[in-house]
């Protein structure tokens, strides 16, 4: 996979391999994601995309290879250390805090790197920032502004106190996205954020991703919705049974016969 040396490489993957028993999930995968861009990662189900995300976020140790975040080696770092260095992710199978509200989910992300003795935390503990439903006694007047703004941004304005347990999958995905954004990441890994979204939600998501990239964030996007990918990605990589088989602009990828074969199946 020939890669141009690009000025600002936010995330680099070098020759990463992972085996599960006799199954080779990732086979010497090498690629990079530039800051300020949205990069797509596509491939048939089971191609190893989720495994790659687990390697990047530290939930899976690779058998071989290295992962670099803004030029800094993070292969041996623990998941929470990577997050503190600015790497955030979402999960294909949602990993929400199911017994909390949407806003509380986002708050856990926002506060994760703040120490408990921080004044705003103490204020909350003393009761002024109580997560009691607004309108009741002890209505929070402040502290939730940032969280509300984030929820607004992903298109979930007003759902701060809604239990995530009862949200439809699409909206629950957006809560996960907001939670990931709450840590203020440089690199954002999104595992199928568009699945379960309706057309208008999907459009909002696309705009948001472009906007985030415009702010300098590097976004790596696993997605099946080709509309969305074509619209937001400047570059797309294709993974097929553990190997990178192609990389290029969306137009190149669409025209690539190897990709069509991988995606549409070879049986003619």
């Amino acid at each position: 996979m020939p890669l141009d040396p690009i000025t600002h490489m936010a995330l680099e993957v070098r020759e990463v391999s992972v085996h599960f028993g006799g199954v080779r999930a990732l086979d010497s995968v090498t690629f990079g994601v530039m800051g300020g861009t949205v990069t797509g990662l596509i491939g048939p189900n089971g191609a190893g995309k989720t495994t790659l995300f687990n390697v990047l976020s530290g939930l899976q140790t690779p058998d071989q290879g290295r992962v670099l975040l803004a030029g800094r080696e993070i292969t041996r770092k623990k998941p929470h250390q990577r997050a503190q260095l600015g790497l955030a992710r979402t999960f294909q199978r949602l990993e929400l805090f199911w017994s909390l509200s949407a806003g509380e989910n986002v708050r856990v992300g926002a506060e994760a790197v703040v120490q408990w003795w921080h004044p705003s935390h103490i204020r909350q503990t003393l009761g002024r920032g109580t997560p009691v439903r607004p309108g009741g006694p002890g209505t929070p007047a402040h502290g939730s502004a940032g969280v509300a703004a984030l929820l607004e941004r992903v298109g979930l304005g007003g759902l701060d106190w809604e239990p995530v347990d009862g949200l439809p999958t699409g909206q629950a995905r957006l809560v996960e996205l907001a939670r990931a954004l709450a840590i203020g990441p440089q690199v954002l890994l999104l595992d199928e954020p568009g699945s379960g979204l309706d057309d208008s939600e999907s459009a909002v998501l696309g705009d948001l991703l472009v906007e985030l990239a415009g702010e300098g964030m590097a976004v790596l996007l696993v997605e099946h919705d080709m509309d969305l990918l074509m619209r937001v990605c400047s570059q797309i990589f294709v993974l097929d049974y553990g190997q990178l088989i192609a990389g290029g602009t969306p137009e190149e990828i669409r025209a690539n016969p190897a990709v069509q074969a991988a995606y549409l199946g070879s049986a003619q």
């Binding site: 939930l59 955030a88 992710r89 999960f91 929400l96 856990v108 939670r179």
Partner: peptide
């Protein structure tokens, strides 16, 4: 209690 993995990936020790 709900998801240790998610806790870790938002930066919680």
């Amino acid at each position: 209690s709900d998801s240790p993995a998610a806790c870790a990936t938002v930066g919680l020790n």
